[in-house]
Amino acid sequence: MPNLHPPAPRLRRAALPVLLTLVLALGPWAGTGFAAQAPAAFPDLPLNPNAQQAAALGLGPGEPASLSRIPAQALLVLLVSYFCPPCHKEMPRIKDLERRIRERGLAGRIRLIGLAVGDDQALVASFLARHGGLNFPLLPDPVLAAHKRLGNPVVPTLYAVAGQGGKLRLVLKREGEFVEDPDAFLDTLLRALSIPPGATKTPRGK
Score class of each variant (00 low, 15 high):
residue 12 R to P: 06
residue 13 R to A: 12
residue 16 L to V: 13
residue 18 V to R: 15
residue 18 V to W: 12
residue 21 T to V: 05
residue 21 T to W: 07
residue 21 T to I: 01
residue 22 L to I: 04
residue 23 V to S: 06
residue 24 L to Y: 04
residue 24 L to N: 04
residue 26 L to G: 11
residue 26 L to E: 13
residue 26 L to C: 05
residue 26 L to H: 10
residue 28 P to V: 02
residue 29 W to V: 00
residue 30 A to I: 11
residue 30 A to V: 12
residue 30 A to L: 11
residue 31 G to S: 02
residue 31 G to K: 03
residue 32 T to Q: 04
residue 33 G to D: 08
residue 33 G to W: 05
residue 33 G to I: 01
residue 34 F to H: 05
residue 34 F to D: 02
residue 34 F to L: 09
residue 35 A to G: 09
residue 37 Q to M: 12
residue 38 A to E: 06
residue 38 A to W: 03
residue 38 A to L: 12
residue 38 A to F: 03
residue 38 A to D: 04
residue 39 P to H: 02
residue 40 A to M: 08
residue 40 A to T: 14
residue 41 A to F: 02
residue 42 F to V: 00
residue 42 F to W: 02
residue 42 F to D: 00
residue 43 P to Y: 00
residue 43 P to G: 01
residue 43 P to I: 00
residue 44 D to T: 12
residue 44 D to Y: 13
residue 45 L to H: 03
residue 46 P to V: 13
residue 47 L to N: 08
residue 48 N to C: 06
residue 48 N to V: 15
residue 48 N to I: 11
residue 49 P to W: 04
residue 50 N to S: 06
residue 51 A to K: 12
residue 51 A to M: 11
residue 51 A to H: 12
residue 51 A to P: 09
residue 51 A to N: 08
residue 52 Q to V: 13
residue 52 Q to L: 08
residue 52 Q to N: 07
residue 53 Q to A: 15
residue 53 Q to H: 12
residue 54 A to Y: 08
residue 54 A to P: 09
residue 54 A to W: 08
residue 55 A to K: 14
residue 55 A to Y: 13
residue 55 A to L: 10
residue 56 A to P: 07
residue 56 A to T: 11
residue 57 L to R: 01
residue 57 L to E: 07
